[in-house]
Amino acid sequence: MLRLPELEVVIADSLVAALTRLAEGRHVRALQGGTDLVANLKTGQTKAQTVVALGPLSELHGIDTSGEMVRIGAGERLVDVAQNAELQELFPALTYALARIASPQIRNAGTLGGNLCLDTRCRFINQSDLWREAMGGCLKSHGHECHVIPGGGGCVAALSADSVPVLMVLGAEVEIARLQDGAVLLRRTRVADLYDTDGLRHVRIADGELLTAVLVPKLPEGARAVYRKWAVRQSIDFPLVSTAVRLDLDRDGKLKQGKVAVGVLGPRPRLIPLDRWVGRPIDETLAQQVAAQVFDRCHPLPNVLYDHEYRRERLRVEVLRAIRTWFTPTAAAN
C-alpha cells in the first residue's frame, strides 16, 4: 500500500516553537488535520522532512462572534465551523460551503486554515510517482514543462478550496503570524489578496509564517451571499465549479454593491465586482447579464479532471442560479 516516507513529526507545544521550526524552510510543513498534506506526501508530490503538528495550539482555536469582525481560529475543524449555530445564522453561505467539502470524515479532521492553504490541484500532479515519472514530470514536480498550457509562463494548477470564494465575497481577512526577534508578530491580509498566480506556491505566506485565524466582517443589512459548488459526485469530490455571489441591496431591493468570486480556475481565484449593475433590480435580466459577464471573464483550464469547456458553461449556469435565489423563492438558497 501507499506509505508515508520517513518524516520527523514535531508536535508544537507553543506558537513560538511552531514558528521557529517553520522558519527553517519549505522542507518543514505545518500540519493541521492532515487531510491534504498526508495524501500529497504519500503520493510523493509534496516533499517534506518535517511536519509541525499544530493541533494543541490554543492560538489557533476558538470562534468569537462578539465583535464586528467574527474571528474563527484557523485550527477549528471544518465540521465545527459548519455546524456552529451562530455562524450558520451569520454566514449561511460559508457554513454551507464548508459542509460540502469532501466527506464527513475529512470535515471531522480538516480545518478551516487547512482548507485555505489547500495545495493547488491538477490532473498532471495529483498522481502517483510512476504516473508522473511516465509523463516526464511537469513544473510542479521534476519536469520542465506545464502540460496544461505548454510553453506557458508557469504552473496553473487550480485552487480548489471550497471556502475561498465565499470568504472573498464576504470580505474576509486572515491573520498571519511570524516571529520577529523572538516575539510573535501578526499581520492581516484580505483573503482576496492571499493568493498568487504561481501554482507552485499560490498562498502568499512566507516560510516561517502561519495562518492563525480568519476574520469575517458581519454583513450589513440587505446583504447576502450564496455559494454554488458543482462536482460529479455529491460527496468526496473537490469542486469542479466553485463560485460565490454576494449582493447588497438597498431598501428598494436595488443593487447597492455586489461581487462574484470564482475558484477552480488557475492558482488564483477571481473576484468580479458588479459595479455596472448598481441601482438595478435583481431579476432574470440582471442574472443573465452577470452570468454572461462571469462567463466572459473566466476561463477554466484543462487542469482538473473534467472537460474545461463544460466547466465554463456550468460556471455560467451556477452564477445564474445563485442570483435567481434572490427573486425565485423556490430556487435552492443556502
Binding site: I11, A39, A53, G55, I106, N108
Partner: peptide, 14 residues
C-alpha cells in the same frame, strides 16, 4: 468522530 485512519498520523492520537 469518524476520521480516516490512513490520513491520521499515529503519533497524533497520543
Amino acid at each position: 468522530a469518524p476520521v480516516l485512519a490512513c490520513m491520521t498520523l499515529a503519533v497524533l492520537v497520543q
